[in-house]
Every structure is written in C-alpha cells, then in structure tokens.
C-alpha cells in the first residue's frame, strides 16, 4: 500500500493532474494488483489496432432522474453495475479525478481461462459525466466517458468508448476471439444496470463507428506490457513461489 498523499489532487475544472506514472493509493483486500502501479496512461492515440468509437445509450423517461442524479448514483454504485463475476475495485475516495481503480476480470480474457489484472484512472469528472482512461497493457488503449444529458424524451444515459486494441495480441482477441462482443456485453450490462437502478427496464442502443481502420504498427511493441501475458505468467509462477517460501519458512522453524 502506498501513501494516500501520492494521489494528485483534482483540479477545479474536473480534470486530474498529469502524471508520468500511475500510483495506487490503496489495494483492496482480495484484489490482484498487477500491471497498474508505475504504468503510464494510454489513450486512443497510443494503441495498436483500428480506432473505434462505441456509444451505448439508454433512455430514462421524463421525471425519472435528472442527469446529475444519474451520474451521482453511477459514480457511487459503479462497481455494482459492473458485469457479475468481474471485479471493479473502486478507489476509497470515490471516482474523483486522479484516483485509480483496479480491475480483476475473467470476461476480458477469451474463454475466461484466467483472471486479468489491470486498471484505469479517473481523468475527468463533473456533475454530469466522468471519464476513465486505461493504463499500459490493458486490452484496449483509450478512455470511456460516462454521461447523462436531457433530451426530448427525458434523460439519456450514455457510455462512449474511444479505443484501439492495445497490441497485436489484444487485436487478435478483439477480432477473432469475441473481444468486441465481450466489450459490448460489459457496457450494455452496465447501462441496463444503471437504468434498473432507477426502476427502468429498457433496451440499450449500441452504435459502433470505426474512426480509423489503420493498424499502428509502430505501437506493436505495446505487447511488452500486455496485462494478459503478465497476469498469466504471474498466476503460473505464483503457486511455486508460495510453495518455495513455505518450504524455506518450515526449514527455518
């Protein structure tokens, strides 16, 4: 655990302070903490695969909740709206600018064969929106903006992802092993859960736009930080490390 004072204070405008390396203020009990501490943030320009803009929306009828009420509840209950079986460890201080959240996920790995450890940072937050940006090694490089705004029918609730797969391996997974569908499922579930929180059952509209078809081959080396490979190696080696430590400790006794 690191000192809480290392977290950059939010700026008055709602933006986090720039940070060369991500620092966790707290590691929750039971969380696997890999691939986050000391990593850089990675935006849609730093990824490898084609750039996608994915927009998921759900409508709440007029009078259900204001955009401010929706976003406040969303921030407060974010981890409960997450896909069951996966864990979003929200920062103790809440989803405020500069705070970092750990994610332990099986859904993001094709076939759910192992648990992936990665993280995101809250780069922006105001009363009607907040944005999470990924760290190096995450399946995608980019950010997700969660927002709510008024339209003719009531309050529109939206999650918008701007991303590229982070490296060639994640791109392969996105294209051929159902990665894009999994991602759709994650955000559709999240939006359905937000609507259900306000007592609304509604279909989630999904709009997918390929912003840039090009692969950024110069970013292929992002694979060095691949959180899937690193989590897999860790989970393979970890039992042996624990066993060796236990043997040494019993010998000393």
């Amino acid at each position: 655990m690191t000192d809480q004072t290392e977290v950059s204070p939010p700026t008055p405008s709602g933006w986090a302070e720039p940070t060369p390396k991500v620092r966790l203020s707290h590691v929750p009990e039971g969380a696997m903490n890999l691939n986050v501490e000391g990593r850089q943030l990675s935006g849609p320009l730093q990824g490898f695969g084609p750039m996608w803009q994915k927009t998921y929306t759900v409508s709440l009828p007029e009078g259900t909740a204001s955009p401010e009420e929706v976003v406040s509840a969303w921030k407060e209950n974010f981890k409960d709206f997450w896909l069951p079986g996966d864990h979003f460890y929200a920062p103790l201080a809440g989803l405020n600018p500069g705070e970092v959240a750990l994610i332990n996920s099986r859904e993001s790995v094709p076939g759910g064969l192992m648990k992936l450890s990665t993280g995101v940072m809250v780069v922006y937050s105001d009363e009607t929106s907040f944005t999470l940006m990924t760290t190096q090694g995450h399946p995608f490089s980019g950010w997700v903006t969660f927002s709510a705004f008024e339209d003719e029918a009531g309050t529109k609730v939206q999650a918008q992802v701007l991303m590229r797969a982070n490296d060639p391996m994640w791109e392969f997974g996105m294209r051929f092993l159902g990665g894009h569908k999994t991602e759709d499922r994650i955000w559709q579930h999240t939006l359905s859960s937000v609507a259900a929180h306000f007592g609304v059952q509604s279909d989630v509209a999904t709009e997918i736009l390929c912003v840039d078809k090009k692969l950024q081959w110069g970013r292929a080396r992002n694979i060095w930080h691949n959180a899937g490979i690193r989590s897999g190696l860790y989970l393979t080696v970890y039992p042996f490390v624990r066993f060796r430590a236990a043997v040494r400790s019993s010998r000393r006794a």
């Binding site: 405008s13 709602g14 935006g43 849609p44 320009l45 750039m51 803009q53 780069v123 922006y124 105001d126 929106s129 944005t131 950010w143 903006t145 927002s147 918008q160 701007l162 912003v211 840039d212």
Partner: peptide, 19 residues
C-alpha cells in the same frame, strides 16, 4: 472550457486530418 468529450472530438478530428 473543454471536457473529456471535447478531447475526444480532437482525437477524431486528428484522425481525419492524418487520413
């Protein structure tokens, strides 16, 4: 004022410009 969606607009504009 610029929020994170505004930054997103700049990213997509940049892609169009590069293209």
């Amino acid at each position: 004022y610029m929020n994170s969606s505004g930054i997103g607009l700049l990213v997509t504009l940049l892609v169009r410009i590069n293209r």
